[in-house]
Amino acid sequence: MSLLVAPTALLQHDLTLAWRRRAEAVNPLLFALMVTALFPLALGPEANQLARIAGGVAWVTVLLANLLSLDVLFRGDLEDGSLDQWLVSGQSLPLLAGARLLAHWLATGLPLTLAAPLLASMLGLPEDAALTLLAALALGTPVVSMVGGTCAALTAAMPRAGILLALLVLPLMVPVLVFGAGAVEATLTGLSPLPALLWLASGLALALPLTPLACAAAIRISAQ
């Protein structure tokens, strides 16, 4: 159990920090709401058309909102030397990285997932499709946090990595977007969303053991 003491402490620390800065943590949610509100304004209020694109819009919005919060995931800790402490602490670096990624999902991905029904109803998505969207986001946003967090670790040493980080993360997010929005699309057209959801689940199963390792390697490169 002693293996998990430090990662648990890190998780608690990160979550406490996120809670104290909750005004800041709400920003991705507000961003997602505002972007979603832009689509009816840009495309017109016709309900059928909006419901048709709602799943895709929700996914793209959630991806972008995640991207905004990823930029600072490791930067502060790199600048104040905490990452160097991680390296010399003798603790398992992949587990520490995994705790950080989990904290990011709990603070960003989970609230965005829970807000998805709201986004969906703004665009008039039918209820069964909204449920599919909820399930797809629950399976997909952890992958976004983990893969995005790995890229954020690579760019941690750069003072301003925003656009570059988007360039690194977004191509890697194509499968999540395709299966996530595909599940909603399948429900809308009367097909079973299960194949797409299962693909998302297997993506999560693949990312869960691999990304902490990759993220640890990225931290090693950035902190050296």
């Binding site: 790995t150 191509p171 890697l172 194509v174 299966f179 693909w199």
Partner: peptide, 27 residues
Amino acid sequence: RAAALLAIVGLVNIPIIQYSVYWWNTL
């Protein structure tokens, strides 16, 4: 080294991306 790590992550992802795009295309 950073670019190498990103290339490895990309290589792992390429088959998944290609499969997902085929899947998307048939949808």
